[in-house]
Amino acid sequence: MPFTHVLLALAVVLVWGTNFVVIRWGLDELPPFLLATLRFALSALPWMLFMPRPAVCWSRLIAFGMLLGVGQFALLFLAMRSSISPGMASLVIQMQVFFTIGLALLIWRESLRVYQVMGLLLAVGGLGVIASHLNAAVTGVGVLIVLAAAFSWACANLVAKSVGRVNMLHFVVWSSAFAVPPLFALSWWLEGAPTVMLGVLQQTSPAVWATVVWQAVGNTLFGYGVWNWLLSRHSAAQVTPMALLVPVFGMSASALALGEALQPWKLQAAALVLAGLAVIVLWPKLTQPRPVKAVVKG
């Protein structure tokens, strides 16, 4: 890739990784389901007024919005409220790669390769390290909730794959609208009636409102827009390995901004999970035969 495109990819990964700290700041004043409601409301409006609906059936738009909004982010926000640290959340959520592979095996009967098994075993080893060091900052419940969020993300990936080649930014914007009603209902049921929500919002500081806007504009519009723009111009093997840096940025940002301690066991768990992801993503690229250049004799 050209150097400028590499910088764009790094910018997206930086935004996605550091967003776990931004989420933590938002959760300091807003309950998780209300925060998720606001995030997806601002991801849909006013952008739907300027972006045409993609050529996708309504059922897939609804499914993607529900899986991404309610399944992934609502559960992630719930876990990060008090059950898992931002750095660990950014690492555990990457298990979506392995869930995606497993679901593809079941649904599309794709064959399981040896390198995929190796990568999965490494990642499971990393989860084992986390499970052996549970504490108040990283609880078993928090890990399980984030794993459920990762599974929902994997299901959303399969829905996105099934829609074919469409404008993915438009797809994300329009599908975000369908996440808002169930998220609002959950917030009403579990966090308080609309009058209570209004009172919470009136007391919310401008800094927290900025975190909500950043999640919608930075992560959805900039992140997905640039990422899919890069995928449309380069092979997936060139672009997707950059996503391995998400937990690196996530854990580093959490340590710098929130003072989250990076004990040796956390680094060991991160090394195992990232090694497993690297094997899954990079092995096909590294082992594919290089084309033989013809030698022209004069």
Rank of each mutant, 00 (worst) to 15 (best):
M1P: 13
F3T: 15
L7T: 12
L7M: 15
L8H: 10
L8W: 14
A9R: 02
A9Y: 06
L10S: 11
V13H: 00
V15K: 02
W16Y: 05
I23A: 10
W25F: 15
W25Y: 14
G26C: 06
L27E: 02
P32W: 06
L34Y: 10
L35M: 11
L38R: 00
R39P: 00
P46L: 05
M48R: 08
L49E: 09
P52W: 09
P54E: 07
P54I: 10
A55N: 14
F64G: 01
G65C: 09
M66D: 01
F73D: 01
F77R: 01
S82A: 14
S82E: 13
P86N: 05
S90Y: 05
Q96R: 00
Q96P: 00
V97M: 12
F99L: 00
L103T: 01
W108N: 13
R109A: 12
S111A: 13
V114T: 14
V114D: 12
V117H: 10
G119T: 04
L121R: 12
A123R: 00
V124T: 09
V124G: 05
G125D: 05
G125A: 08
G128R: 10
I130R: 03
I130Q: 07
L134E: 08
N135R: 03
A136S: 15
A136K: 10
V141E: 14
G142Y: 07
V143W: 02
I145W: 00
V146M: 05
V146F: 04
A148E: 01
F151N: 00
A156E: 01
V159Q: 02
A160K: 05
K161P: 06
V163C: 07
G164L: 09
V166M: 04
V166C: 04
N167C: 05
N167F: 04
H170V: 08
H170S: 15
V173K: 07
W174D: 04
S176H: 04
L183R: 03
L183E: 01
L186F: 14
S187T: 00
W188V: 11
L190A: 12
L190E: 10
E191P: 10
M197L: 11
Q202N: 14
Q203F: 08
S205P: 05
W209L: 02
A210S: 13
T220Y: 09
T220L: 13
Y224A: 11
N228Y: 15
L231W: 11
S232E: 12
S232T: 10
R233Q: 08
P241T: 11
A243Q: 15
P247S: 06
V248M: 07
V248L: 14
F249Q: 04
S252Y: 06
A255E: 01
L258R: 03
E260F: 03
A261M: 10
K266N: 09
A271L: 13
A271V: 12
A271E: 06
V273R: 00
A275S: 15
L277I: 02
I280F: 12
I280E: 06
I280V: 13
P284C: 08
A294S: 15
V296P: 08
